[in-house]
Design a binder for these strands. Structure first.
Length: 211
DNA sequence: CACCAGGCAAGTA
DNA sequence: TACTTGCATGGT
């Protein structure tokens, strides 16, 4: 499996080149973005982020003060805006109440504790937590997503019904714990999924052909 | 018109 | 435990 994963990474990197994923000014932008993009096209999430930025709302202080209903209005372009406003509020409330509004201090917890605390927040599941761990806290945690399942499944590299955690283990136990590499790999998998591994059509001229 | 996007929680059996 | 459903806008 180790060689297989490295081969996949090499092929995707050769095809797409280095991807500058999740360019953001700070950790809060990444965390909020991770919530806004849940089951949502990144373009729509990005619009909402730009709007928050433009209105000066992208800070722990501002987000803790704004009413949930007003927040939902500001992020409506990304869809699921009412539930996402609640989720952002839950996240911010956790930082304010347990870390004195200091996001950096929250993100400096050890990886296990940080992941568990993130998962304890309603609205943050395994993928969102791992995105925050990898892209904001810079921990060597592999982010699994729908495309990861779909692509590996389509190449018969995993069994049906494998869990998130088990699939994550496959990557983390067979690859060096490298933040930069994990960041690239997840991005490459998403780009591959969007281009070559849609639900309906079979992969065609996919860089992973015959893997 | 249908289908999907960088998920998650709550409800059901 | 293992499905199912609600959440919602905007692009193709």
């Amino acid at each position: 499996m180790k060689e297989r994963l490295l081969e996949i990474y090499r092929r995707l990197f050769d095809f797409f080149g280095p991807l500058n994923w999740w360019p953001a000014n700070d950790e809060l932008e990444i965390a909020v973005g991770a919530i806004l993009t849940q089951n949502t096209n990144w373009r729509n999430a990005e619009k909402a982020i730009r709007n928050l930025k433009q209105k000066g709302l992208l800070s722990v202080n501002a987000l803790s003060k704004i009413k949930e209903e007003d927040l939902s209005y500001e992020i409506r372009s990304c869809g699921y805006y009412r539930i996402k406003a609640k989720r952002i509020k839950n996240f911010i409330k956790h930082i304010v109440e347990r870390f004195d509004s200091d996001l950096k201090r929250f993100l400096s917890l050890d990886t296990e504790s940080l992941r568990n605390e993130l998962l304890s927040i309603k609205g943050i599941g395994p993928e969102t937590a791992d995105c925050i761990l990898l892209y904001a806290a810079k921990r060597p945690v592999f982010v699994v997503d729908e495309y990861t399942f779909r692509i590996l499944r389509r190449h018969n590299l995993i069994w049906d019904q494998i869990s998130y955690e088990d699939l994550q283990k496959i990557f983390m136990e067979n690859l060096p714990a490298d933040v930069e590499m994990f960041s690239q790999f997840h991005a490459l998998i998403v780009e591959t999924g969007k281009r070559f591994c849609k639900k309906k059509p079979i992969c065609k001229s996919c860089p992973l052909e015959g893997i």
